[in-house]
Design a protein around this nucleic acid. Structure first.
Lengths: 152, 152
DNA sequence: TGGTAAACTGACGTTTACGTAAGAAAGCGA
DNA sequence: TCGCTTTCTTACGTAAACGTCAGTTTACCA
């Protein structure tokens, strides 16, 4: 009797459905190094065999897509930003497996750095957009005032 | 003696500098209808003659670039969003020149609609990004907590 | 009224981000 | 084990957004 609630492996088609991407796009992202080579973090997959993903992989991919859409970065910039999300998966895996507290600290610090980088970018983007929003709102107000004057 | 403080006409190179675009890009935007055909709102420019822009044109172009960068839209979507920014320049010009209050009201209402459309888009984008920001911040907190546990 | 810097008009080239087609191989249920 | 669906790899195709000549033409100024 094995653990029934274990990670159900998925193939590329299902991942594509759940992320809104196409299989081709997923392969392409893997090709340019934006996604990890095997699918999940296990052994690098043998030539010709089907890719295999876990639900954790799906979450990571979905998040990359989210960053892509919201920040409008090129895939190249995106790669740098997530600094091979692959590596992060690697990190998470290693965090759970290692017992060395020094190593654990190192990994956590690294992950924290990645998050911080992303936060900085997101926040600056929010700031810029907010500024734009204010300016647009002001113009809208002006427009409405003029309309009100005309109506009196 | 002419009005010395009048609109100083600019040529494409200067506009490029001020907007951070290249002359080619400006011509391209004009080519696809994102920018108006002549430069400024005067007569449509004769074949072969230099394009001529006013500082108002520069502002409009800069704003289009801003929307492009912040929203990450395709130039096609962007065209729809600003609905030929040309038209808006046209509207402004006509607003100043017309004395017909009915026409004026119509133009103002139209301009207001454009602004509203942009505001909706910007606001939804801000909302999405803010949500992402919160999630990233939560993760960051978690990371730091774990690090703190390790350090005790 | 030359001369020169900057601009104009094609037209083809390039990069990014995938789409699409073809033939072979893998997986999985019956 | 057979058959069918889904993937795999390879490779060429494509749309968007410009870059880059090349040969002319303007616009400005000494």
């Amino acid at each position: 009797m094995t653990t029934e609630t274990a990670v159900r492996p998925m193939r590329i088609g299902e991942v594509a459905e759940q992320t809104g991407l196409t299989p081709r796009t997923i392969r392409y992202y893997e090709e340019i190094g934006l996604l990890g080579a095997g699918g999940d973090g296990s052994e690098p997959r043998e030539q010709g065999k089907h890719r295999c993903y876990t639900s954790a992989d799906v979450e990571r991919i979905a998040e990359i897509v989210r960053l892509r859409d919201l920040l409008g970065l090129s895939l190249d910039q995106l790669s740098q930003l997530v600094e091979a999300e692959t590596a992060r998966a690697e990190i998470r895996r290693e965090i759970k497996e290692t017992d060395d507290p020094a190593r654990k600290r190192e990994l956590l610090t690294q992950a924290n750095g990645h998050i911080t980088t992303q936060l900085i970018l997101v926040r600056s983007r929010v700031a810029e957009l907010s500024k734009l929003e204010v300016e647009l709102a002001e113009r809208q107000l002006l427009c409405e005032q003029k309309l009100a004057e005309l109506a009196e």
